[in-house]
Structures are given as structure tokens and as C-alpha cells.
Amino acid sequence: MTIAPENAQGGAHRYRAMRDFVQSTDDTVPGKFEITKEGIVHDMMAPVGPHELTTLYLRKRLETGMPEEIVAHTGEPDVENESERIMRRPDIMVIAMHDMEVPGTFDPRTLIAAVEVVSRTNPDNDWVGKVRDYPLMGVPVYAIFDPRTGTGAVLTDIHPTPDGPRYATRKDFVYGEDVTIAEWTVSTKGLPRYE
């Protein structure tokens, strides 16, 4: 659900007000708030078994092949690009540990990849909004896993377009195939599906 109007492209003051609101609601309102180019998005998801299990499986499978200084981090803090006025919280952030040693939010340009497990309640947030926002923020690789359909995609190669930076390459997959995210290949066998 988008809370601010679609054309909410106001200045730094409006962004700061949205940011303050999002931070004030952490841990007090169910779901997850993020600031997009369209305004504040509230994903009212309650932790659902298949979503949380998919996130766990992917984190563990990614970290199996990673060097010790790289992690597949789940949780806080958010990833923020203030100049674009976007603040997101990926389900999994592939990032070097030394890039996590910062006060406040993570710089999205330090992420190696963002991984999202599509929400049953708001799939457009992952398939539309984040496909638009992550290249604007400078996230080089965006992987989407969709337990609704047992499919997904890995988007890479940010390039300029008249509408702003976009991903140039999209590799679709179906559950059961191996998927390469940045430098690491993971199996999608046995990932749970929504019923």
C-alpha cells in the first residue's frame, strides 16, 4: 500500500519528514515501511513461513560459498540514497563486513547485491517498485524470488535511460535451477512456495 501520493517528489524537507515517520514507526506498527520514488510504502506482511524460510535458505546457501568478510545480511539497518530520496530494506543484503561499520543506514553503492522474496500481499513492491528504485540507488545486482509462482529473476548491468538508471540484463529462472547472484551460484531446489 502506498501512503504518499504517486507524484510525491517533494524536496529534502518532505523526504526528511517521511524518513522521520518511518523511523518512528519501527517496532510499533506491524509490517515494514519503505520510502520509494512514489512515497511511503507499507507492506503489512506478517512473517509467513514460506517467506521467512526462503530468506533463511538463501542466506545460508549464499554464505556457504562466500569469503568470511562477505555476508548475506538480513535485518536492519535500511539502505538509503538520500540524493534519490529512497530508503529500502532488502530481505537479504550481500555486503562486505567492513561496509557495515557505519553509523545509520547503509550506502546502497556498497551492496554487492540485494535479494528480495516476493511478498504475498504486495508483489508489485518487489517486481515493479524495487526494479525501478534499486538501480536509481546504485545497487548493482537485484535478485527476486517469488514463492507465489516458483520463479524469479536476477537483474544486473545498470545503464542510463531517459527515465533514469535501469537494469539492462534480466535472467529469469524457475525453482529447481541454479541461480548466479553476483559471484555466487546457489541452488533453488526445495525452496518453499505459498499455498
Rank of each mutant, 00 (worst) to 15 (best):
L56T: 08
V48S: 12
V131E: 11
E76M: 15
V118D: 07
I92R: 09
V102Y: 11
L58N: 01
R109M: 07
S83V: 14
A113F: 00
I35E: 03
V128K: 11
M45R: 11
E101Y: 13
N81D: 12
M97H: 14
V29P: 03
P90V: 03
W127F: 07
N122K: 10
I70L: 08
P140L: 10
V131F: 08
G65H: 06
V29G: 13
E76V: 03
E101Q: 15
E101T: 12
N122W: 14
A114F: 02
P47R: 12
E116C: 07
N122M: 15
T36V: 05
H73V: 07
E69Q: 11
P123V: 03
T110N: 00
M66Q: 04
P77H: 02
Y142S: 06
M97F: 10
V115N: 00
H98K: 13
V128W: 08
A114Y: 01
D91V: 03
I95G: 09
M45C: 03
R120W: 11
R120G: 12
G65F: 07
W127T: 12
P47I: 02
T55Y: 00
T105R: 14
D99W: 09
T74W: 07
P67R: 10
V128F: 09
D99Y: 05
K32P: 01
A114M: 06
T54R: 02
V48I: 14
G39T: 04
E76A: 15
A113N: 01
E84H: 09
V48C: 14
R61Q: 00
L56F: 09
E80S: 13
E76Y: 04
A46F: 15
E80T: 04
V48H: 15
P135T: 09
V117S: 05
Y134W: 12
I35D: 03
E82W: 10
E116Q: 14
T55P: 00
G104E: 00
W127E: 05
A143P: 06
P30N: 11
Y57L: 06
E68R: 10
P103C: 02
A72N: 00
E82M: 04
H51T: 13
D124H: 11
D43K: 13
A113C: 04
M44H: 14
E68M: 13
H98E: 13
G104L: 00
N122S: 13
I95D: 01
V139G: 08
V71C: 08
P77M: 01
V118C: 02
I70A: 00
G75L: 04
F106Y: 13
E82L: 06
T55M: 12
E76Q: 10
L62P: 04
T64C: 09
R89A: 06
G31W: 00
D126I: 13
T121F: 09
N81I: 10
M97Q: 14
T28C: 12
G104I: 01
V115T: 00
V115Q: 02
V118R: 01
R59A: 08
T28G: 02
D27P: 01
I92E: 01
P108L: 03
D91Y: 06
V117Q: 06
M93F: 11
V29Q: 07
E69D: 06
T74V: 14
T121P: 01
N125K: 10
R88D: 07
V79Q: 08
P108D: 00
T54G: 12
L56M: 11
V115R: 00
